[in-house]
Amino acid sequence: MFNDLNGYLMLAEKIFAILGSLIYFVFALVVVKQVGTMSRNVRDKINSILISVSYLHLAASILLVFLAWTIL
């Protein structure tokens, strides 16, 4: 009985973590889009660095989804 409850809790935590990381992935996509739009409107020296950073952040969010899916 206790083992079953513990198993359900773990499953719920996993689903919660995957959903959370997926929402974060969508947010990271919005950030990439946002930086692109801003860089088109206002152009300066470090815009290319900012765009690269936004893509790295997107890659990290994909890694978060992957970790939530595999290690939990």
Binding site: Y24, L64, L67
Partner: peptide, 10 residues
């Protein structure tokens, strides 16, 4: 591990 990774990402 996952919590700390998510924390630093946020």
């Amino acid at each position: 591990i996952l919590g700390i990774f998510a924390w630093y990402l946020i």
